[in-house]
């Protein structure tokens, strides 16, 4: 069964895109068939894997475009050397087209995927999201089988967790009762600071309180690494840029913890 995983958090800068890119890349290295959907108007995942959003059909064209101009979701899949990608688009900033009919608007992505061969063609669909609670996020949550919530260890980030959990609960209690929170993933962790300890304590307390969601915090956490920023500057996947960085090793550990998979270096691209 295809796993559709949304990487979500309505807080920006917590590592959603990095996590999406690294997990997608490593799932490919583990020999899995992966489709990455960039639902972020900043389209950084698209750029990282050399997909195009200019002159090519993007998620906007199948999700938000007026009926007359809308294309089939499979027509928007770009086949890059890394993996298959549905590119992000700046026009995703305005999802008001989905609000015209709330019911069908929220389920549009799910309906499109259900009516395509995506579930047959891919083992994993990873969806990168933007840090806004809007109709696009609801679309992602309606179709997702699992969500991963990256979070930095800080007070504001902990408050952000509370908000995103509210949204997930709404979805779980309505249209997508099977949605599973795979786990909360701490990113950009510097164990030397007390603030990190404080943030992690707060998130743990929140997780303890949300018993009905059965929240899990991944044992693996992503350590702060300058290689992450450097790889972004180079616009290449982190693992390709520096596979021995702390963050790369941590994502490798996450792959094992989250999916029970190991990377196969013979599948590596660009290293």
């Amino acid at each position: 069964m295809t796993k559709i995983i949304g990487i979500i958090n309505n807080k920006g800068g917590v590592g959603k895109t990095t996590t999406t890119c690294q997990l997608s890349y490593m799932l490919r290295m583990a020999g899995k068939r992966v489709l990455l959907i960039d639902a972020d108007s900043q389209k950084n995942s698209t750029g990282t894997f050399r997909a195009k959003s200019e002159g090519e059909a993007t998620l906007y064209d199948c999700l938000l475009a007026p009926d007359k101009y809308r294309v089939d979701i499979e027509e928007t899949i770009q086949h890059t050397k890394y993996m298959d990608i549905i590119a992000g688009d700046e026009l995703l900033d305005d999802p008001s087209a989905l609000s015209k009919d709330l019911q069908s608007g929220m389920l549009r992505l799910k309906n499109m995927i259900d009516n395509s061969s995506i579930r047959d063609n891919y083992d994993y669909v990873l969806i990168d999201t933007h840090p806004v609670t809007d109709m696009i996020l609801y679309n992602v949550l309606m179709v997702a089988t699992d969500v991963i919530i990256p979070v930095r260890a800080g007070t504001y980030e902990a408050e952000g967790i509370v908000k995103i959990l509210k949204v997930i609960k709404e979805v779980k209690n309505s249209q997508n009762p099977d949605i599973n929170i795979a786990g909360i993933l701490f990113t950009d962790i510097d164990d030397r600071t007390n603030i990190t300890l404080l943030g992690r304590t707060l998130v743990q307390e929140i997780a303890d309180q949300e018993k009905d969601l059965d929240l899990k915090i991944f044992d693996t956490y992503i350590r702060r690494s300058v290689a992450v920023s450097e790889s972004q500057a180079m616009r290449v996947p982190l693992f390709e840029y520096k596979k021995n960085s702390n963050a790369s090793k941590d994502y490798e550990a996450l792959l094992q913890e989250c999916f029970g998979l190991d990377v196969d270096y013979s599948n590596a691209i660009g290293i």
């Binding site: 059909a57 993007t58 906007y60 770009q78």
Partner: peptide
Amino acid sequence: TIVRDVKTSTGTTKEKV
């Protein structure tokens, strides 16, 4: 309505709003 051409993975060209 402003449209421009975009390519799809099937090789066809479509108009994009």
